[in-house]
């Protein structure tokens, strides 16, 4: 079961992938070896190049249309409770079975998706693949969160909300139809479920006056429930249709209401009293002129993100693979 990462043009998809790459390197090479990350060569090259650029204080350049290849990666989590593993796996005596989840990133303002939204017809393979997703990660760009009505970002956010709401309903409709089809053919399928997650991208650009309007503190809370309330306060104002349709999934027979929320931010240099010109420069920690230093970003949130999917991977893995095979598979599958 694939996972989809959705975001608008310039919403921070590439940056997110670069930072995720860096976070997994740091996190995945810990002593435990219970998390692994793999990606096809092309994607891995992009992600690491993006991160290298960020170490030089640069954001990635806008992804050109010609460059938009499918970016994907795979999370693998070590299965601990061997007792619960399917019989065929226990029989093989694998040393390290990993549950895997395969993610693909999609540009919702891309032509394929726009055409699909308009016509509702999933003719392209990309869309068919997208609709099969059970995990849906939506990037919501905090730099477009404004309460100034007559501004382009306000209108853009309204439009983005409509688009994502439509996609959510498309996912739900697809899942429900699939379920009904299986049922009709005598199978007894599990009730359809989708796991949504939101990444509030560019969180550092969220304006103080917007937070104040919404009655929110500046810092994102730690506690799980408080996190949800905080994030939903933002979504309620900026993507209300999406939020209502996620919650309404259950009414249509597709459970989708256990959304999770993550932040992504990168600290950028600000000149006092000056309007930023061109691309902002990234602030680095541990920076030394001769090299080294890392972008100052929301590492903990990326770890949250990785850990969140451990539970899901154990429930609904794409696949369960032995460690060695997992890497090989990741590399060959497109």
């Amino acid at each position: 079961m694939p996972c989809a990462l959705l975001g608008d043009r310039a919403s921070g998809k590439t940056t997110f992938l670069g930072l995720l790459y860096s976070a997994q390197v740091k996190y995945g090479t810990g002593v435990h070896d219970d998390f692994r990350f793999h990606a096809p060569m092309a994607s891995l090259n992009v992600m690491s190049a993006v991160y290298e650029g960020m170490k030089d204080a640069r954001f990635p350049s806008a992804t050109l249309k010609e460059e938009i290849t499918e970016l994907s990666f795979i999370f693998g989590y070590l299965r601990k409770v061997t007792g619960k593993l399917p019989y065929y796996i226990r029989q093989q005596n694998w040393v390290k079975p990993f549950s895997t989840l395969r993610f693909s990133a999609y540009d919702v303002s891309g032509e394929d998706i726009e055409e699909f939204i308009e016509t509702g017809i999933a003719s392209r393979p990309l869309i068919q693949q997208l609709l099969k997703s059970v995990v849906i990660v939506v990037l919501v760009d905090c730099s477009k969160m404004t309460t100034d009505i007559d501004t382009p970002p306000y209108k853009k956010m309204l439009r983005y909300d409509s688009t994502v709401a439509k996609l959510m309903v498309a996912f739900q409709t697809y899942k429900k139809q699939e379920y009904d089809r299986l049922k009709d053919s005598g199978v007894n399928p599990d009730a359809p479920i989708i796991y949504p997650a939101f990444v509030l991208s560019k969180f550092d650009t969220l304006r103080d006056d917007v937070l104040a309007r919404l009655g929110l503190h500046q810092g994102f809370p730690e506690d799980k429930r408080a996190r949800r309330e905080y994030a939903e306060a933002l979504l309620r104002v900026f993507v209300p249709q999406t939020l209502s349709q996620i919650r309404g999934g259950k009414v249509a027979g597709v459970s989708m209401d256990k959304a999770e929320y993550f932040l992504s931010w990168v600290r950028t240099e600000t000149q006092e009293g000056m309007e930023p010109v061109g691309q902002p420069r990234i602030v680095r920690t541990g920076f030394r002129p001769e090299g080294g230093g890392e972008p100052d970003f929301s590492y903990d949130e990326y770890v949250h993100f990785i850990e969140h999917f451990r539970k899901i991977a154990n429930k609904i893995p794409d696949d369960i693979l032995e460690a060695e095979k997992f890497q090989a598979q990741a590399l060959i599958r497109p």
Partner: peptide, 28 residues
Amino acid sequence: VSSGSGKGDDLRFHVAYDSLDEITVLFQ
């Protein structure tokens, strides 16, 4: 939309996919 996304849980709704094109344009 405002009740279905609100803090309370007294209303939930789901829009049919075919209806969304027209109503989202009007909503915007």
